[in-house]
């Protein structure tokens, strides 16, 4: 196995293209190195993106935030502006592993590992984030929601890489939240996850919303009925109950070692409702 650490996305993509065997990208390594240890992957080439300058920073301008693909969770949490504007995205990644893991783990890896239970993904989808994808033929923008296609499956080609993510500009009275259910309090994998992103008008009426579930289907699930219940409401009890019902209905979990399907459907509603309450109180603050 060969390991390289190029300094430009172009060089990284060229190396991917030139490799005859199995080539993999390495961001924080907290998924891929674990899989390597467990003999689940045996790559011929590992391309580390942490030395690529375009992957390393968080920037903000009039068109929103750009988050480099190699930015670890710890850095998201330390970014005061990002934490204020997109608390749900930051708290989703903030749940990943432990302090040590967060020094490495990235949104990119979380998305591209394509675990149904990925904690960073629902809030990114709810935010309407897009990825800047670099390939042999140049750069394209791809909605984050179009990237995971199934457990462990993504829509990128083998010779493409994510360089960064863009988050759209934020209207006033907007916020988001992510909550997961685990049987313990940390160091666990989501049994259910729910992200809510919403915007209120001056009167407190919800004018935009997106509700996304994690861990209750092969990929995240966007629950339009829940968003519709919020939009036009004051995020009152009736709307919250409708969110809960819609999310329980929309969830398509399986029964496994992490919980029965019945439990997960029920809890998806409970957790989504709680996320909506948090996002709402943040938008009001």
């Amino acid at each position: 196995m060969q390991y390289i650490a190029p300094t430009t996305s172009a060089a990284a993509v060229a190396a991917l293209a030139a490799c005859n065997g199995d080539a993999r990208l390495l961001a924080g390594g907290t998924d891929i190195l674990v899989r390597l240890q467990a003999d689940l992957v045996e790559p011929d080439l590992l391309v580390d993106i942490k030395h690529i300058v375009a992957c390393q920073h968080i920037t903000e301008d009039a068109s929103g935030f750009i988050i480099g693909a190699a930015v670890p969770s710890a850095q998201l949490g330390e970014h005061a502006r990002l934490s204020q504007v997109w608390p749900g995205i930051v708290e989703g990644m903030g749940l990943v592993g432990s302090t040590q893991v967060q020094g490495r783990a990235t949104l990119t890896g979380n998305l591209c590992n394509a675990s149904p239970a990925a904690d960073g993904v629902p809030a990114m989808v709810a935010a309407g984030a897009t990825a800047c994808v670099v390939g042999p033929n140049g750069t394209r923008q791809l909605a984050v929601e179009d990237i995971p296609t199934g457990p462990g499956q993504i829509s990128l080609a083998n010779n493409e890489m994510i360089e960064s993510f863009s988050l759209p500009p934020r209207p006033p009275r907007s916020s988001d939240a992510y909550i997961r259910f685990i049987p313990r309090t940390e160091m666990d994998i989501a049994v259910v996850g729910a992200a809510v992103n919403l915007t209120l008008d001056e009167t407190g009426t919800c004018i935009a919303a997106c509700v996304v579930l994690g861990a209750v289907g092969p990929t995240f699930i966007t629950v339009n009925a829940a968003a519709e219940a919020l939009i036009g409401s004051q995020v009152d009890e009736a709307a919250l109950q409708a969110v809960q019902n819609a999310c329980s209905t929309a969830a398509t979990p399986i029964s496994d070692k992490r919980g029965t399907a019945e439990f997960r459907k029920h809890t998806a509603g409970v957790i989504a409702r709680r996320a909506a309450i948090v996002a709402h109180s943040r938008a009001l603050a």
Binding site: R184, T185, E186, I189, D256, K257, R258
Partner: peptide, 23 residues
């Protein structure tokens, strides 16, 4: 946790849940 096949399904500390300090 055993599957229908009689094989152990939770072979690591991720799904074999001992309490962590914060619990």
């Amino acid at each position: 946790v055993y599957g229908e096949d009689g094989c152990l399904q939770n072979t690591g500390f991720l799904d074999y849940r001992i309490p962590v300090a914060s619990d």
